[in-house]
């Protein structure tokens, strides 16, 4: 018998809902970040780098792929990265087999947060964890401890988490 428990989180406050995801991502915030693409165009005057073609970000146990990525550099130190933005078919995977997909992502390197927005969906293939799938419009992963918060907005309805028994 397929035993799944659906938990619909209706914690609405001013038209929005928040849920603590019952799983942790495997993160390595102190590891170097590797970003690759078929082309990288570094525009020094705009303090950014544009990556195209099978772009991938890898930091220790966590990786993110997307069609395009943009790296924003610190204007005071042009080679130091501040943010990474990913667009179109964003997928975040950790070594434990947890996969997240979204329309966009923003990795704030200084704040150590990875924010996924637009049709966010988590799928967990790790049999040892309770989480099956989760959906929301926005999710923020704390890259320091791996915890995540899921948010919905007034137009998209509730954040939804599917738990395994």
């Amino acid at each position: 018998m397929r035993a799944l428990v659906f938990v619909l989180l209706g914690l609405f406050f001013a038209g929005s809902a928040t849920a603590q995801s019952p799983t942790r991502f495997a993160t390595s915030p102190d590891a170097p970040i590797e970003v690759s693409g078929q082309t990288i165009i570094v525009q020094e005057l705009k303090n950014r780098a544009l990556l195209n073609g099978d772009t991938k970000l890898l930091q220790g146990d966590l990786s993110m792929t997307a069609t395009k990525m943009t790296i924003i550099f610190d204007p005071e130190n042009g080679d130091q990265a501040q943010d990474v933005f990913a667009n179109h078919r964003v997928s975040v995977v950790d070594v434990k087999g947890q996969t997240s997909q979204a329309d966009k992502a923003h990795y704030n390197i200084r704040a150590e947060t990875l924010e996924l927005t637009g049709n966010v969906r988590i799928e967990n293939r790790n049999p040892d964890t309770q989480l099956g799938t989760a959906q929301s419009q926005r999710m923020i992963i704390n890259m320091r401890d791996g915890t995540s918060q899921m948010y919905s907005d007034a137009t998209s309805g509730r954040a939804r988490i599917e738990l395994k028994p």
Partner: peptide, 29 residues
């Protein structure tokens, strides 16, 4: 940072560097 690639075209006027073929970038924390 460190960028490795097979090809680089660098333009001085607008300070743009275009890396192609198997580009990988490393960022020091």
């Amino acid at each position: 940072r460190r960028i490795t690639a097979d090809l680089l075209n660098s333009t001085a006027e607008n300070k743009t560097h275009e890396f192609t073929n198997g580009v990988i970038t490393l960022f020091a924390k």
